[in-house]
Design a protein around this nucleic acid. Structure first.
Lengths: 167, 167
DNA sequence: CTTGGAATGTCAACAAGACTGACGTAAACT
DNA sequence: AGTTTACGTCAGTCTTGTTGACATTCCAAG
């Protein structure tokens, strides 16, 4: 890559390879912090990050179908099913047959499931809150902008649907 | 959680649970986009994300020791070793016994290793560049601020050492 | 100088969680 | 009636994390 013709007076200093590399590494380290707290909680129980994700999105969209969850999480049904089965067996998630379309299963958190979700969420939100507070409102807006621009287009629409669904 | 006493005229609107939740989901979806392009390249070869990370940080700090890499990546030495072994066998990484301390192994990319690292890096940087461009310089600064605030303290120092080491 | 502990790295075995492929069932659509 | 869709499951593989056991090297205390 080297420098190219941009090296001179280009106003977009933040687009140098080195700046981009720092962004990449920041993303890597930050994601570790992002998952660290819930991971610690999950380690005690016999659950993993996959269970957390399922609980999170079921909590955010109660009654969602398996297929919908599949698309959001971006995993295969076999992979999701393994996780979902244990959550249902353990009484954290309830699966109700659809009324209109009986092929569908609608997913809900039980009280116990909601309690665990809240624990995990609280831990993750606490870190996010601290980071937001430390960085300030301007930074938060930029943070969100860059993240949205980094998503795949179809993921972005999933994300925006989720946002709109809850204001 | 509910609303609490902050609901009224609090200036920190971005600290509501819902705002935090959106930040969490943005992080989740964005990280998927972040890794998608390198993952596609790696899928063809018989390598995974772990190989990418190793190549990335060896490239950034040629001659680094296994132990140092361990701390940066945050995995066990056994886990790293498996990845490293295949990279060495395939001639992408060279491992030289330390001169002062013969227990240490110093790691370097071969030409072939550097070529693959560049391919992966180019793909990842391209997405990062597009996101930065779309979001604008202000946003980029905020993005970095929030990410740094989200890291674990020791990860942050690792990250800063890497930054300083290359300006 | 020797010996024992600490540090570094390797080998082996296992678990979580992703994947593909194949198959079965029930319901809906045409 | 036949096809498609939604979901579940069984079986097998791969990546990548884990622990445990072990070899080598260094260093420092006896």
């Amino acid at each position: 890559m080297a420098e190219g013709p941009n090296a001179q007076g280009e106003t977009l200093l933040y687009l140098t390879d080195e700046q981009l590399r720092q962004g990449i590494e920041a993303m890597f380290f930050a994601y570790r912090g992002f998952t660290a707290d819930p991971d610690r909680i999950l380690a005690g129980l016999s659950y993993g990050r996959a269970h957390h994700r399922a609980l999170h999105f079921i909590n955010g969209a109660p009654g969602t179908t398996v297929n919908n969850l599949l698309n959001i999480l971006g995993v295969t049904k076999q992979s999701l099913n393994r996780v979902l089965r244990t959550l249902i067996e353990d009484g954290l998630v309830e699966s109700r047959v659809g009324r209109n379309d009986k092929r569908e299963r609608h997913l809900y958190l039980t009280d116990e499931g909601a309690a665990l979700e809240r624990d995990l969420s609280d831990a993750q939100r606490a870190r996010m809150r601290a980071a937001y507070r430390q960085a300030g409102p301007e930074a938060v807006s930029g943070f969100r902008k860059v993240l949205e621009a980094m998503m795949d287009p179809d993921m972005l629409t999933s994300y925006q649907r989720l946002r709109e669904g809850r204001g």
